[in-house]
Design a protein around this nucleic acid. Structure first.
Lengths: 325, 325
DNA sequence: GAACCCATGTAACTAGTTACATGATTCA
DNA sequence: TGAATCATGTAACTAGTTACATGGGTTC
């Protein structure tokens, strides 16, 4: 596990606390750990034990006291050894390749739909990575030593998604060349009701004033995972719209509790993909004040708003729409 | 975990046993599991439990009886649901990007050496993947349904490594533009003896008849991991040679025991990278007969041979050399 | 007879994740 | 009062890996 070495590496720039380290790792897209407490705090125990770092406890009034770690000479040697050692083979995990290998029985329209959905996912990830790179610890504002290779790293990451996107185009033309239904055995025909079970959210496309929007209502399932944001975006792409009305009931408790971070992540994804969202609350339904606050604070102002009735929500959404198609 | 769905997917082509499944997953480069027994056999228990597969026990004389699994209609529905559901974001893990972000203190020559080493690793992986793709279960010999997308998948995988290689070239020119030593603080200067501890193998470059070869001897550490093959290849690349003499003592017990598969993997890597290896045994040292057998069987004949003394080894190596540089 | 192949399965472990616990302060 | 932030840490879990156990048959 090279996480320990990464920690040492970060400490060569400046002494850091576990908490800061965690934030950095979480915000850096090419550090492929979740940056969870468990690993980081445990890592520091080990590093201390091996004498690669020293710990200085700094008491703070009011705030919890923090442990500031500094790298030692032994630590620097260990880091150098790691840097010069043979680098692991780069690996990727593309679920899509596996699906493609196994999807030979599907009919063309299904192939097209999973491909488009995948395209959206990749596009979004590209935008997301771009953002994260801009504001991450290694972003090279000034060409200081610490961010020497920032541009090269940026290019590497973005080209991963770009080449994926151009490959997707190739797959598209290939699929377009296939006959509509191929010689598939009878038991492989898709049952539409099953799909609806999978995509757990109920959605309708509504046309008004020549504008189209997606209306998401509850069907027992709520927005409770990051993945749901991707689903919404896929739906939008499929139906060629970028406006969504969410029934207030579709937001889970976890969602409105800001501390889970779910709302932030999901909304960020929607905003990044330029999807406008209006939430329509049913009578009596209320969100925590802080939730509404956060919405206005985070600059979602013109892409995300909460209304107490469906009518207002739709009016705002369609009024705001620039490109109606 | 989508492994269960992958298993269902494979079963749509034909009923399979756990053992066959394992082999397929192991041999398919884009299936990112090790294909270990534990997971696969357990997966079948779950799939049976959920009614997605049926099991048929086939007794065999002499050989252990096998459990042949067949997919059910429920299983096909489940598979279809998965295929049509939102695909995971493709991810990559590139240790090298992390190293680069943390390597700003290194001097140019060190940067160059880790870059070259990484380049070799990627090159090798490219060759390896190409091979694996050719002989994997999804290889499209005849354009049957089952391997419909084989070419597209192949292209995707190979372009991952190719783009990495061309990126490496960019990094190379960038590094070449850096001053030889930059303003690094005194405590960051590398201590050569530490590197030697890291690269656990002792190696010398020997010149004879205008030819150069790498001589690897024991320094307490043996060839016992796949990684060691990569190390050897890195050494070769660094010193611009493709011939190696291995002291027999450097091969670990695990290596010569064929059942670990270590020898096969390591040698395959060496062969793939066109490195010729001669092993020189010390007096009295002996390898299991099967080991020598395997060497000749697997077509290593002209790139890999065992000798009972150093002189023969070197003679064969240098005689065989085509391009001497 | 050593060590491989087929075929099933389990034990023990590593890496990594999510979720919880604490507790003072800030903020509305 | 409720909930967020800073900061540390632990518990419980999932996913995945390596290694072992079994045992007849084959191959040299």
């Amino acid at each position: 596990m090279s996480l320990n070495h990464v920690i040492l590496g970060l400490l060569t720039r400046e002494p850091l606390t576990g908490y800061e380290m965690k934030k950095i790792i979480q915000a850096t897209p090419f550090m492929y750990w979740s940056g969870n407490n468990n690993q980081i705090y445990k890592a520091f125990v080990v590093l201390l034990d091996e004498g690669f770092v020293t710990k200085e406890v700094q008491h703070q009034d009011g705030l919890p006291s923090k442990n500031i770690y500094t790298i030692t000479n032994d630590g620097i040697n260990e880091l150098n050894k790691w840097l010069l050692s043979v680098t692991d083979v780069p690996i990727f995990k593309k679920q899509f390749l596996i699906k493609l290998a196994l999807a030979y029985r599907l009919k063309r329209s299904d192939l097209e739909s999973i491909l488009t959905s995948y395209e959206n996912v990749v596009k979004m990830q590209l935008i997301l990575s771009e953002r994260e790179l801009d504001k991450c610890y290694f972003a090279g504002q000034e060409p200081s030593d610490g961010s020497l290779f920032a541009d090269l790293i940026r290019e590497n990451i973005l080209s991963f998604y770009s080449t994926e996107l151009s490959w997707i185009q190739k797959v598209k033309t290939f699929i377009a060349g296939l006959p509509k239904t191929r010689n598939i055995t009878k038991d492989t025909i898709l049952q539409k009701e099953n799909n609806d079970v999978e995509s757990t959210m109920n959605y309708q496309i509504i046309e008004r004033q020549g504008n189209r929007y997606l209306y998401l209502t509850t069907s027992g399932s709520l927005i409770q995972r990051e993945q749901d944001a991707l689903d919404i975006i896929s739906f939008c792409a499929e139906h060629d719209t970028n406006t969504v009305v969410l029934d207030g009931n579709i937001l889970s408790d976890d969602f409105v509790k800001l501390k889970t971070g779910l709302a932030g992540t999901v909304l960020q994804k929607l905003v990044n993909y330029k999807i406008k969202v209006a939430i329509s609350l049913k009578g009596g339904q209320n969100f925590p004040v802080r939730f509404q606050e956060m919405i206005s604070k985070n600059g979602f102002g013109n892409t995300f708003r909460v209304f107490t009735n469906l009518k207002d929500a739709v009016n705002w959404l369609l009024a705001k729409k620039r490109k109606s198609k």
